[in-house]
Design a protein around this nucleic acid. Structure first.
Lengths: 340, 340
DNA sequence: TTGAAAGCGTTACCAC
DNA sequence: GTGGTAACGCTTTCAA
């Protein structure tokens, strides 16, 4: 590994000049710059990360993190991941500014971004609402040379360094596979979803339906929206059960499944339909334990909190950009025996 | 974060002396040592990892890695993990010496350890055979102050820093859960295992049987050993099918499942029993695709290669010991929809 | 047993 | 534009 010092001797210039070229700081003569660039390539010089980190420790970096969620049990694990990354990076002079905003409020999220910008952040991890105003604000963030990583849900048309989160369509397909395994012959299936307008939910449902079609005998008979609301979920599922009484399997494709699950539990004791959900929380865990839910497909919420912060820190500290722009978290199948 | 320099000033000694105390290098007056230890605690001094790494880069560390396996498909992913860690740590002056030895040959493994010891290694990652001779040799390794991490299988009675690998019993339990989901009412189950004498296989079977017992109607009727040999596997499974013809589900609890699966595929076209396996390889993947195998429980082979090397490197570079002595890899359920 | 000083590879700053 | 030098926090070496 060649060092900046050796390179300087070879090029017959000072380390300062090499440094300016390597880090594109400007104030270097065009011709000199070209010559040095050549030498850098020739010798394959790569700045030493450790030495770089040592000097950079003096700086105090602030990473902003914004979750679009309040009181969502899913985000507890995300926060844990964020905190873990924070703890690990603390000794390298990286600190964190974490904030949660209401799930679907564009103005809130906008205000939050502005606030952070004002307070001063060096990088941003955000679970963005896929909205025009947010998009243009994130472009502004990028213009200020603040690196951005999105997590949990993505937003098109910005220069975010990476998206780290669920492959929604795949989650749906896997859920379908699980339902299929548990229903040998024929089955009527109901899908309970948050909102058709949510891109993630929509993709999940598509993946699910596409896959179910491959099994003759299986049919998605009903799709119910419950707007992430427990009581709506409860009511709609109860209606569904009363109506025909012929639902053999359920797929709960979003949060807010508690209401619906309670409705099922109450309605037909002992003779439950086959149920697959997404994500896990204490309630789902108890449902797995008692056998009401037989599988749930999770999306590594911890990783969704941990990785964005970690990768942004590495970006600030060592100038390392994420290798992959789209990093899907694993679609983890959890059954009763997986827990504890 | 207080530095060694400041501490030296406070204690009224030189940095050298602090360094000697912190790193237990000896040659420090007893009373001085006690006093300085007190100050270190009081100010909560922790050596700066980055600075430490910077100086230590001059050193060239060698990590030895030994897998007990030749031509095993499973270990391809392990090797990938090892290589990845190697690549990442290379720039920090860590190099790797990787070797594979025949699966059950104690003399081979012993010879391999000795060889490495002679060539000179600074740390050892090993997939040990659980044997008395190996155990005592690993104790010798420890006596030489060479940190050891075991992976894939553990060995009792040594001072290995950590074990990183599968929770065999849990894998068995999860497999049982999957079989149970797919067999609604009654079912006769056959378990195909490598060898009862292998601790891992044994635990897996126990976990499986314990869990199956919880489902009335399900019964483990037969357990077959095939000694990790494809043709034995083929023959024994064929016999089994011919014999009674009443096996509703199979659990292949070890590698060498290819023979057995072929036997099933040939025997009853279209009307296959429910099959769960462990681990994944191209053959298993194709079985998942065609629907012969409906689920396989994997154990993150990549992680089993990556983490030991990475953690040993951190140990050498920063003096960081693994936080947990037993690090189970995730028991990952894979179905057709999980792949590609 | 202890201290002083050099050095690791980088960045930042101040002259020129 | 460019060069020289100090500094980051630690380990190592040599001298006392």
């Amino acid at each position: 590994m060649i060092t900046i010092k050796e390179l300087a001797k070879i090029a017959g210039v000072s380390r300062g000049t090499i440094d300016r070229v390597v880090n594109r700081r400007g104030r270097v003569d065009k011709s000199v710059e070209a010559r040095i660039s050549g030498i850098i390539d020739k010798y394959g010089y790569k700045p030493n990360k450790v030495a770089r980190a040592l000097v950079n420790q003096k700086k105090l970096y602030v990473i902003g993190a914004i979750s679009a969620s309040v009181n969502n049990v899913f985000f507890r694990d995300v926060v844990e991941g964020v905190r873990r990354a924070e703890a690990e990076m603390k000794e390298f002079g990286v600190s964190l500014r974490y904030r949660e905003v209401a799930k679907f409020s564009v103005p809130d999220q906008l205000a939050c971004i502005d606030e952070m910008l004002e307070e001063g952040i060096d990088a941003l991890a955000i679970n963005p609402i896929n909205d025009e105003a947010i998009r243009s604000r994130l472009k502004e963030v990028d213009r200020r040379n603040i690196p951005v990583i999105t997590f949990n849900s993505d937003i098109e048309g910005t220069d975010r360094l990476a998206y780290i989160g669920c492959d929604y369509r795949k989650t749906g397909r896997i859920a379908a596979g699980l339902v299929a395994v548990s229903c040998r012959e024929k089955a009527n299936i109901a899908v309970v979803i948050g909102s058709m307008k949510s891109l993630g939910h929509h993709l999940r449902m598509q993946g699910f339906c596409d896959e179910i079609k491959k099994y003759s005998g299986l049919k998605v008979e009903r799709v119910v929206e419950m707007y992430d609301d427990e009581s709506t979920s409860f009511e709609k599922v109860r209606e569904l059960l009363a109506e025909a009484g012929e639902v053999d399997a359920f797929f709960f494709a979003a949060g807010g499944k508690e209401g619906g699950l309670r409705a099922i539990r109450e309605s037909r004791e002992g003779n439950w339909p086959r149920i697959v959900t997404v994500d896990i929380d204490p309630f789902t865990t108890s449902c797995l334990r008692e056998g009401l839910v037989f599988a749930t497909v999770c999306q590594q919420p911890f990783v969704q909190g941990y990785e964005p912060v970690k990768q942004l820190a590495h970006c600030l500290l060592y100038g390392e950009k994420p290798e992959k722009a789209v990093q899907y978290t694993q679609a983890e199948i959890v059954i009763r025996q997986s827990i504890s």
